[in-house]
């Protein structure tokens, strides 16, 4: 098995670029969904909101300034090829340095505090980033990155449903979470749903689901249909863009699933604002 050496500095550089790009440039999937919603929306107020969001994204991209002031907490899903050896440093440090450089050099807001309850002192470089690593076959590193704002993160929820709750239980919990969020999470929202696994696995799947392009579907047709059905149900709530009413409460619903225990059916709903900032790279 051939070993491939990757310089820590190259990882830092790639991560720095990822976070600057995803904060400045809205994804094509989101842009198309916003344009489509703007054309189909029946409420004049909502159409105006959607126009302003499209204008916002044009300005951010042109001027290379963040789409939103809440440039979030950095989250990375990494597939680390087992043939890779990091030269001149460690993988973890190289990634954290990349996040730090992006947030300082890129004029991104530093939103992380060092201690959740007692001190709450800003770390001033937006680290630590949250890194999930899977060791996979191969000699490459693949990084899926996102930045998560907390206006929408705070509206998210996990519930340990049991098998008898069934499909209806899943739908009910998703709708309860969306209804509870109401106008707060900067609708139109993107909803990431994780079903299965354990308590924390469901939450991780939900997060990963928010980073999947919204013009894609779950591979299993039954879950793909559930994504479409939930999107229709959420858009019937009438919260609308900016919570001012209308038929554009969500732009997309993504479901990720995993095998689970005979006694359980964990469901996590990660609410994301319309921007759903994400980007991928391979080193």
């Amino acid at each position: 098995m051939a070993i491939r050496a990757i310089k820590a500095a190259d990882i830092t550089q790639a991560v720095r670029k990822l976070f600057m790009d995803l904060n400045y440039h809205i994804g094509e999937d989101i842009l198309s969904a916003l344009q489509k919603a703007q054309q189909e929306e029946s409420s004049a107020v909502a159409r105006n909101v959607l126009s302003q969001l499209l204008e916002n994204h044009r300005i951010a991209s042109e001027e290379e300034i963040p789409i939103c002031q809440d440039t979030g907490m950095a989250v990375l899903f990494v597939e680390y090829g087992e043939q890779v050896v990091v030269e001149d440093g460690s993988f973890e440090e190289a990634v954290q340095e990349g996040v730090c450089r992006a947030y300082i050099d890129g004029y991104l807001r530093k939103s992380v505090v060092d201690d959740p309850v007692f001190d709450r002192c800003n770390t001033k470089d937006n680290t630590p980033a949250i890194i999930y690593t899977d060791i996979v076959k191969g000699d490459k590193i693949r990084i899926l990155a996102g930045c998560k704002g907390f206006g929408s993160e705070n509206m998210s929820a996990v519930k340990m449903l049991t098998p008898s709750a069934g499909l209806e239980g899943v739908k009910q919990f998703v709708m309860d979470t969306v209804n509870h969020a109401g106008p707060n999470p900067c609708p139109p929202i993107v909803v990431g749903i994780g079903i299965g696994g354990t308590f924390e696995k469901a939450a991780m799947l939900a997060k990963k689901a928010t980073l999947r392009p919204i013009d894609t579907h779950h591979a299993d047709k039954r879950y793909a249909a559930l994504e479409d059905e939930l999107l229709t149900m959420i858009n019937a709530t009438d919260f609308g863009a900016a919570g001012l009413g209308g038929s554009t409460t969500a732009l997309g619903v993504n479901i990720e699933t995993f095998p689970t225990h005979i006694a359980g059916m964990p469901v996590a709903v990660n609410i994301c604002c319309h921007a759903a900032r994400h980007k991928e790279t391979e080193i």
Binding site: V49, Q52, L53, E55, N56, H57, I59, A60, E63, I65, P66, I67, C68, Q69, D70, G151, C186, A242, G243, L244, C273, H274, A275
Partner: peptide
């Protein structure tokens, strides 16, 4: 007053 959440670049002008 409500300002539009997510329109941060536009609002900053």
């Amino acid at each position: 007053f409500a300002a539009i959440g997510g329109a941060a670049a536009l609002i900053s002008r």
